[in-house]
Structure formats: C-alpha cells, structure tokens
C-alpha cells in the first residue's frame, strides 16, 4: 500500500513539475525569441510562471493520479 502511494506521489510530482517546467521554459524561450528582455526579466518571468504553474498543477495532477490509482486497485 505504502509502496503504491509513494509511486503515486513520485509520478504526480514528476508530472506537475514537468508541466510547470515546460510552461516556464516556454516563457523563457518566447521572451528570448521576442528579444528586448533583460536577463532578470527572462529568468524572473520563467521562475514566476513556474511557481504559479506548480501551484495550479500540483493539486490537480495529484488528485488525478490518486483517482487513477484507486480505479486500478478496484479493477
């Protein structure tokens, strides 16, 4: 049981961190491609978006994985 719960925690952490990183990276790349942004703005913007996306995705992804885990357990 605990093993499965840990697996859920790891999988969901990897997913929400991945989504947030992707969003942050998208901001960073877009700012770099657009040009005219200072380093602080590009990095700062990416970090801020990463933080907000972590906050948004963390509960959503975690509960989605938990639900999937429960469904799988009951067949």
């Amino acid at each position: 049981m605990e093993q499965l719960e840990r697996e859920v925690a790891i999988r969901s952490a990897a997913t929400y961190a991945g989504i947030s990183l992707a969003a942050a990276l998208a901001v960073f790349i877009a700012a770099t491609l657009k040009g005219g942004y200072a380093d602080v703005a590009r990095f700062g913007g990416a970090i801020w978006v990463f933080m907000l996306m972590m906050i948004v995705t963390m509960p959503v992804v975690t509960s989605w994985f938990k639900k999937r885990y429960r469904q799988r357990r009951t067949g």
Binding site: A23, V27, W48, V49, L52, I55, V56, P59, V60
Partner: peptide, 12 residues
C-alpha cells in the same frame, strides 16, 4: 487554483 491560473495569464 483559478486565481493562480488567472495570475499566470495576467503575467503572460
């Protein structure tokens, strides 16, 4: 969650 999402959109 909605407000944080909105904050991200506002920032972008």
């Amino acid at each position: 969650l909605g407000v944080h999402m909105l904050a991200a959109l506002v920032f972008v």
